[in-house]
Simulated assay, not measured.
Amino acid sequence: MGASGGKRHSKKVSTFSGRGTTEAFRFIWKHRRDYSVKALCRHLKVSWSGYYAWANREPSKRATDKADLLLKIRKIYDNSKGRYGSPRVYQTLRREGLVVGENRVAKIMREWGMKARSAHVYRRLRKLRNDLKALPNYRLEAARPTAENQQWSSDVTYIKLGKKYVFLAVVLDLYSRRIISWRLGASLSANFARATLREVFTSRKPDSGLLFHTDRGIEYRAHKTQALLKQYQVKHSMNRPGQCTDNAEVESFFKILKGELLHATSFVTMRQLRNHIKAYIEGFYNTQRLHSGLGYRTPLEFEGVN
């Protein structure tokens, strides 16, 4: 081929299938930095002026629309820090007034390698004390909440920090799926759980009769915790033995948190971890993340908080 294209490129040129003029122009465009355009046109037997007319023409409306959609999808995906898959990206586009097919969004995200972050949930291991009272699961008979502060759910999970584990306790409002209280601690105890609850009782001021659901962990069965719940006239509900899905909403939050924030990320200090969790819960999960169970609204939006 000419002087600008050495022998090392001859194999690349031979891969052209020769199916048509447009395919030839695309091939020339792809390899224009390896060879002179004139040499490529001569080799592929197409018009040099025709190639430049093709290369300089305005892109089709379809190509332009696809490029614009890709930019919008990438912006939403990046703003979520890679936490959104195609369903939530699609719902965000709809909220912005864009009419687009969900399958098209999913296809573009696959093509460009945009995949939601995810991870397995790792639950803490603990020994149960048989002298602490377990309670029935009252949620099984309760109607779904119709407003905030009617039903809460709480649980604790562990997070690896360096070579040790620390504990994260959360309280979730079952009406809006909002995380209304959380606490990070170095050890698991009744005082740890009680501190999380004291904060939320002070901030939310629920009426008497609140249904509060947890698993059967000793931090919730402890006498100190039970006394606090009794003080606020709370009806305490617990998982059935071996049925962690009874507390599915909090389990789901832990899975989301670990997949979207903690997966493949190492934290060195408790302060660093606490700051990241705070930013995630208060700056994204409660305020920006679209929840499928809420009709793709955020918890604050579902509660009517501006």
Rank of each mutant, 00 (worst) to 15 (best):
R198T: 01
L70S: 06
I76P: 11
Y138H: 14
E141G: 07
S86N: 04
S154W: 07
G50K: 10
Y285P: 12
G293V: 07
V170R: 01
R83C: 13
G162A: 00
E260R: 05
D173R: 09
F253K: 04
K11C: 03
A67K: 11
I73H: 10
F167K: 03
G304K: 08
V166L: 08
Q91W: 10
L93D: 12
S187Q: 13
S154P: 03
T15D: 00
A55P: 04
R83H: 09
R124H: 06
K72V: 07
K66D: 04
F27T: 09
W29C: 15
P59K: 09
V166N: 08
R88I: 06
V156T: 13
R289D: 06
H120Q: 14
D155P: 03
L71V: 10
V170Y: 05
R57A: 10
E219R: 06
N56G: 09
T146K: 14
Y296P: 04
T64V: 14
A279S: 13
P59Q: 04
L294G: 07
S208H: 12
K7H: 12
V121C: 02
G293F: 04
D68E: 13
L70G: 03
R139P: 02
L273H: 12
R8M: 11
G50T: 11
A142H: 14
L128G: 02
N191F: 01
Y280P: 06
Y90V: 01
R144D: 04
R178H: 06
G283P: 14
R88H: 05
K133G: 02
Y285S: 13
K72A: 15
Q272C: 07
T287F: 12
F192E: 00
A279H: 11
A142Q: 08
Y84E: 04
T245C: 03
A264C: 06
A119Y: 13
K38W: 03
T225Q: 06
G283D: 14
A106C: 05
V89F: 01
L300P: 02
I28Q: 11
Y138W: 13
E301S: 15
N275E: 15
R129C: 01
D34A: 10
I28C: 09
I179M: 10
G217S: 08
Y220C: 07
D215N: 11
L229S: 05
L168G: 07
L261D: 00
K205R: 15
L93C: 09
T287S: 15
F201P: 02
A169C: 15
H276N: 11
L140P: 02
K127S: 10
R183N: 07
S176Y: 09
D246M: 00
R271N: 14
V166P: 08
I256Y: 03
K75C: 11
S203C: 00
S176G: 11
